[in-house]
Computed example of a mutant assay.
Amino acid sequence: MTGFALGVDQEEWCGQLRALAAERLRPLAEKGEPGRVNRPLLAALGELGLLDRVFASGALDLCLLRESLAHGCTEAETALALQGLGAYPVLHAGSEAQRERWLPQVRAGRAVAAFALSEPGAGSDAAALALTATVDPAAAPADGGGWRLSGEKRWISNAPEADFYTVFARTGEGPGAKGVSAFLVPADRPGLSGAPLDMLSPHPIGSLAFDGVPVGPQDLLGEPGRGFRVAMDTLNLFRPSVGAFAVGMARAALDATLAYTAGRSAFGGTLSDLQAVAHRVAEMATRTEAARLLVYAAAAAYDSGAGDVPRRAAMAKLLATETAQYVVDHAVQLHGAVALQRGHLLEHLYREVRAPRIYEGASEVQRTIIAKELYGALPQARPGKVAAR
């Protein structure tokens, strides 16, 4: 790829994915029950090798994968992304035993993963986690000791139906983010329960209750007290690809709008003949293209190991999700009442497009990250002194 123009092979792959999403995965998604894990859909993603691609690809390929699937089947895209989000910490920080136990099952679409970070009082401020991991006095010192998890997680995608959870809890090695550890917690662990939440999004979201759930050193993902870094490394990879998901929805809405306005008779011509309509479509297309390029740039920065990944990832997620909201909303407006009918593509996208502006860091959090990174890069000038040019 040169200057963020895709190569021929990449374009062909994206086209194949869009067709696959619409023709093979969409029918499976339509048979699923809203708010429940669609295991046949996950199995198909595994059979097609798409889940394996999540873990074998760089950030750019992940973005192309999510964007292309979102264009044809948002449910397939979300199912794939949640597998990646929940299991990437295992790939990145897990032990060999943890990886051998869970990753083949995730790749095959047989085990459902979940990323359990958010809490009732710790959503945007992830360092304010309250779920506690206290030393378990009953744990055998010869086994390295252990902890008991107590507290609650909420707004967890794939809960309460996941087979295992990547859980972030406060172990107290230091204040704030320095005292958080990451654990791999199987769903059948005693003391762990969950309940579904009735949310706008069609994919499953729930709460988890931890009543003295036992975990040991073998359940740690990485080192004690370093769990927040595991979470941030995961989010830095997946934030640009959330932007890719949004771009895929925006492009689907734009394509539908182009086709509709070019064929809809109105005022002696077509809607596309009206300057107000044509200019709005031009604005939708321009914003979508800008978001797409920023997403690709952030992914390329991640793949090259650039030092400004947090800023670029935040910018990509911010612009792409806000742009998708704008494009889908205007697509609905240009279609009129037909777009509000249940089952219409735009009615579906209108419900889907809202959540990405909140999860994995709300737009306000992304702006805070961007500003912090910008100011942190300034030369340290003394108060009252203007930095030399």
Rank of each mutant, 00 (worst) to 15 (best):
V338E: 15
L340V: 05
A301W: 05
L319N: 09
A324H: 03
G305L: 02
R312A: 15
A331W: 01
R311N: 01
R311Q: 10
Y302R: 02
A314S: 12
A301S: 12
G343S: 09
G305M: 04
M315A: 14
A324P: 01
V328M: 14
S304D: 11
L340S: 13
E322F: 03
A316H: 14
L334W: 08
A337C: 05
D308R: 00
D329S: 09
A339W: 07
D329F: 03
V328H: 10
K317W: 05
Y326M: 06
A331Q: 04
G336V: 07
V328C: 13
V338G: 13
A324V: 00
G305D: 08
S304A: 11
G307C: 03
D303I: 06
V332A: 13
Q333I: 04
A313D: 12
A301R: 07
G307P: 00
D303F: 01
Q341L: 12
D308M: 01
H335Y: 01
A320Q: 12
T323Q: 11
P310Q: 12
G307L: 04
T321W: 11
L334N: 13
V328P: 08
G307D: 12
L334S: 12
A301C: 09
L319W: 06
A339Q: 12
A337R: 06
K317L: 11
A337K: 03
A337V: 08
H344N: 15
P310E: 14
G307E: 12
T323C: 12
A306C: 00
A306E: 12
T321I: 10
A320R: 05
A306T: 00
P310H: 08
R311S: 06
Q333F: 02
L334A: 13
A306Q: 01
P310A: 11
H344D: 15
Q333K: 04
D303A: 10
A313K: 05
D329C: 01
T321M: 14
R342K: 14
M315F: 04
Q333E: 15
V332Y: 07
S304P: 02
G343C: 08
A320M: 11
L340K: 11
A301Y: 03
D303C: 10
A301E: 15
A306H: 03
A316Q: 15
H330E: 15
T321H: 10
Y326T: 01
V327L: 09
Q325P: 02
H344G: 14
V338A: 15
L334D: 14
A313P: 02
G336M: 10
Q325T: 02
G343M: 07
G343L: 08
V332P: 03
Q341W: 04
K317S: 13
V327Y: 04
Q325F: 00
G305R: 02
A324I: 04
A331D: 05
A337S: 10
V338R: 13
D308F: 00
D308V: 00
V328I: 13
L334R: 07
R311G: 03
M315E: 15
D329H: 04
L340I: 09
A320W: 09
P310Y: 08
V332F: 07
V338Q: 15
M315I: 08
Q325M: 01
A331K: 00
V327H: 04
S304K: 00
H344A: 15
Y326K: 00
G336W: 04
A324Q: 06
D303V: 06
E322I: 03
